[in-house]
Each structure stands twice: as structure tokens, then as C-alpha cells.
């Protein structure tokens, strides 16, 4: 790890101020991605702004008809929250599938969403649930937030403050895990809200998380596993790596989507 300046922010405002003042600084949330990356010298920020003491970035609450989760809320908090289990059980489920217990005890929703790893879980939930990412500056719809591999609409020094999820009527997440890292080889999040059905796929896209429009159209007609008969994903534009090739990933998208729909309907 290269040397850096360490700074602690006790509030969101202080974090944003520090980011404006410091040169080449990065926010440090749970550190479960950033620190391993720095250890490998794949990242070498000049400064870190530690958010772990910023209490105003933590917490889970209902605001109107939305479930709102603070950026520094850890995966374990989402996985075990009674409120999340009642309002969007699929989201609690997903949080409980991230990494392992020690990773969930540090990693945060804000860090995961800001990082936008193409195999991460939360981006699929944000996209399928039509979430809004609320920063210190603006509100960004999930459809506009995830722009590529590890790329988001965030500007330099822009802080995710919270994420707002409209409550779906039905939702579920299914993930085919890499047995070593537990990241998604393919993960599919399906959500139905009124007539609107959204299907988001993570782990597979060569350009990161994406919506599967042919699955969405079929499920909008009828939200049932049978509606997906004959519907498949194209291998074109999907990842091929040592874990799985594009054709296999395309196949898995269909399998995970059918399982997710069955799970959503069983609730």
C-alpha cells in the first residue's frame, strides 16, 4: 500500500468539505473493496476520508412509501433489519448473501453501489427496484447511475448519502455464486410494482449491471415462470472468463430469472 493522508469525518457535511479541500482523496466506507485494492497497489489515493464515524450516514427508515437506507449502513444491518425484512424481504435476502459474515460486518451499501463492481449484488437491486441514489448534490435514478465497469454517474468528491427504494409488490433475488469469492457469476433481481416489471442482471454483462428487456416484456404480460418459456439471453455482450464463458452465463440468466420469479411468487 502506498502512503496516504488519513482523515476522519464525523458527519456527511465534514466528509464533503474534506473532499473539496484535499487533493486526490477517496472516501473510505467499510474498506472491504478499497483496502484490498490499495494493498495490491491498484489504487493509490493521496488521502482517505474515513466515514465510519459519520452517524448521520447510517440507518434504515420508511419515508413516505419508500424504504431509505443510509450509505454507511452495513450489509449485516440490512440483512437482519426487521423493517427491511417486512418491507422488501428480497433486499434483506440479498444483503445476507454478500461475501461472508466478517465482510458483512464492515461492508456498506454506499460503498458497494459507489464501487459498481460488475459482479456485485446491490447494483442489481437498485436497478430492478428503481431506486434513487441520493448524494450531497442531487438525486440520481438507478437507470442513470450505473454507467459501466466500476463506473458510475458520481462526480469527483460527490458523496452518496442514502438510497431510496420504492416498495415493490413482489421481488426476489437469485444468485449463482463463485464458490471462492462468493461474488455473483450471475445474479438476477426481479421486481414487480403495479404493472411494471423490472429484471436486472449482475455478474454477466461485459459492461456491468443491465436490465433484460425481453424478460421484462414477457413478465409484464404475465408474472409467472411459464411466461419465460422460450425466453433466453444472448451471449453477445456477456463476460467470458475463467469462471464461466458467455454462453454459460447467458444460460444462467434464464435459470436464475426463472428461480427468482418462482421465489417472488411463493412469498
Amino acid at each position: 500500500m502506498y502512503a496516504f493522508n488519513y482523515n476522519r469525518a464525523e458527519t456527511a457535511r465534514k466528509a464533503v468539505n474534506l473532499a473539496g479541500k484535499l487533493e486526490d482523496a477517496k472516501f473510505l466506507a467499510g474498506g472491504q473493496t478499497l483496502l484490498p485494492t490499495m494493498k495490491q497497489r491498484l489504487a493509490s489515493p493521496g488521502g482517505l476520508i474515513d466515514l465510519s464515524a459519520a452517524a448521520d450516514l447510517k440507518g434504515i427508515e420508511m419515508k413516505g412509501r419508500n424504504l431509505v437506507i443510509g450509505a454507511m449502513t452495513r450489509h449485516v444491518d440490512v440483512a437482519t433489519s426487521e423493517l427491511v425484512k417486512e418491507k422488501i424481504p428480497a433486499l434483506a435476502d440479498l444483503a445476507g448473501m454478500i461475501g461472508d459474515p466478517a465482510v458483512r460486518n464492515r461492508g456498506t451499501i454506499g460503498g458497494s453501489v459507489a464501487n459498481d463492481d460488475p459482479a456485485a449484488d446491490y447494483p442489481a437491486a437498485c436497478l430492478a427496484l428503481n431506486a434513487t441514489i441520493i448524494t450531497n448534490k442531487r438525486k440520481i435514478p438507478a437507470d442513470e447511475f450505473f454507467t459501466g465497469l466500476f463506473e458510475t454517474a458520481l462526480e469527483d468528491g460527490e458523496l452518496i448519502v442514502k438510497i431510496s427504494f420504492p416498495l415493490p409488490n413482489k421481488a426476489a433475488y437469485e444468485k449463482f455464486r463463485n464458490p471462492a469469492s462468493r461474488y455473483a457469476i450471475v445474479g438476477v433481481f426481479v421486481a414487480k410494482k403495479g404493472k411494471d416489471v423490472r429484471v436486472a442482471v449482475t455478474g454477466a454483462g461485459a459492461n456491468g449491471v443491465f436490465r433484460a428487456s425481453n424478460f421484462e416484456a414477457a413478465l409484464t404480460a404475465k408474472f409467472h415462470v411459464k411466461a419465460l418459456e422460450g425466453i433466453s439471453a444472448k451471449a453477445e455482450g456477456l463476460n467470458s472468463d475463467i469462471h464461466a464463458d458467455a454462453a454459460y452465463r447467458a444460460h444462467l440468466i434464464g435459470v436464475m430469472a426463472r428461480r427468482a420469479v418462482a421465489k417472488a411468487n411463493a412469498k
Partner: peptide, 10 residues
């Protein structure tokens, strides 16, 4: 937690 993936200063 994994003590290899967190700063002492945190």
C-alpha cells in the same frame, strides 16, 4: 471482522 482489511486508525 477481518483485521487485515481495516485500518488501525479506524
Amino acid at each position: 471482522i477481518k483485521s487485515c482489511t481495516t485500518l488501525a486508525l479506524s
